[in-house]
Structures are given as structure tokens and as C-alpha cells.
Design a protein around this nucleic acid. Sequence first.
DNA 1: AACACGGGGAA
DNA 2: TTCCCAGTGTT
Length: 283
Amino acid sequence: MSLYEKEIVGWFKKNQRDLPWRKSDAWGVLVSEIMLQQTPVARVLPIYIEWMKRWPSPKDLAAATTSEIITAWGRLGYPRRALRLHQCAKVISEQYNNRLPETEQELRALPGIGEYTAAAIVAFAFKERSLVLDVNIRRLFARALDGLEVPKPSVTKDERKKRAELIPARNPHLWAAATMELGALVCTAQNPKCQICPIADSCKWRSLDFPKTEQKKRTQAWHGTDRQCRGVIVQALRENKVLSSKDVKKLWHLDSQVEKALSSLTKDGLITSPKKNYYSLPK
DNA sequence: AACACGGGGAA
DNA sequence: TTCCCAGTGTT
């Protein structure tokens, strides 16, 4: 019996959220994972529902235009993820007969699928053993096992080894889902709910009286950033089929930053210039 | 290892 | 205002 398995999986079976991607097919799991990269569940939910209704399989999404996809993505943020999901759909429909590959190695080779997402798909879509380490799981074990408020900035070799040892032989996918859910709902970044935590009694961080970790983070500013500028332009193009260079510059106070954003958005494939000094979402 | 990449809601 | 969020790809 894996350490904590009974407590955490037991807790999960009683307290898990009813989320649509938990009863979808493998493609639905992949779509949800891409959307959930850096975007909270509450904001993904409505977009995900509509997305899967409109494009139920990789083949369906592959047939959509880039413009349709960026528009449907709405304000989930990081719209390059939408492009990668589109590319993913094309590869899966053309090279994998519209079915997801089932190995981490093949999944990792798909656009937008990194270490975390490949492991998550193996666990959640195929119910196989994999090492799922997202921010919630990493925080949960940093606290419970290491007595640290927050995990290291990036995953270490030692962390992979130690966390892999915890995965139970039986129902490893439940372990992944349960630890993630516990981290997301109970062992939260701020104000963890230790009163209802199934492993509070053995939590090292709690036994040490919650020592703070020195965080030398410098919050990335948002107002006035290149990202905000890009976001304003893409949103305007969702609402207007075409914009002139002059129109785009009305959206932002600094022309030089608009130039830079138009250049980077074009390079990313998020926008295109159908003719000189005009911009639109790509076909 | 560091950086770029969106956006909204909660504290 | 500050912090957070089911990370990935590039340099």
C-alpha cells in the first residue's frame, strides 16, 4: 500500500468535482489539458463545452480554419495554445487515423504537449501509470513530505524519483487525479484547508508550524506589457474581420509597441496581413 | 536556467 | 495591488 493512498484516493472518491473532461474520450482529455495550461478550471469550462460540441474529434478540428479556432478560444489567454491544438488535431487525424497515440514518447512529440501534459493524458485518458507533476501535486508533496511551503521553481531529478515511488501499482490514474484534486481544492497556495485535509496528521509542513519559504519572485507586470498589447490586437481581430494599420494603432498608445506586437503575432501565425497595411486572423 | 507568452478573479 | 492558475517552446 502506497503511502497516503487510502487517505487521498478515499478523499477523492467522495469529494471530486464533476468535470466534463472526466467523462470524455481521450481527445476531450487532450483538449482540456491544453486549455487548462495556465488557465483556471472555471474559465475553461464554458469554452471547453462549446469547443467539444463543435469539434468532437481531431478530424473535425483539423478541418476548421485558424480564424475560427482563435475566435472560439476567446479570452482563455496564451492563444498560441489554440494554434498548437489545431496542429495537434491535424497530426492525429492524418498520421494516427484520428486516434491519440498512447505512449508518452509519441504524445510528447505532438505540438503543445510537454512533460506534464503527456503524463496527464496517459493517466487520465488511458488510465495507465505515469508521473504527473503539476503545480498542485508538487505543492502538496513539497509540504506533506519536505516541509516546504512551495516546491522548487522547476522539477528536479530527485523530485521525479521520490514522487514516482509514491505511485501505487493499482489504479495509478486515480492517484494522479486524487493528488491533483487535493492540491487544487485543499492544499491551496494561499489559505490551505488543513482542517479538512485527509493527510493533515502526517503533514511535515504542518508539524513544523507552516514555515514560510523565501520567495524572490518579482511579479511580472501586466499593464503596458507586450503581452497585453498583443492581447488587445488579437481580441480586436476576433471582433473585426479586417483592421487597417491605422485602426490597430488606435488600440494602443505606443505605436512602436504595436509594430513589435504585429511582428511577433505574425511570426507566431496568430495574425496575417492579407494586403499591405491590413491585418486579419489567418484563414 | 531564463524568458516570453493572456487574462480574469480572488485576496 | 499582488498573486494565482491541470505549462510549453525557445534561447
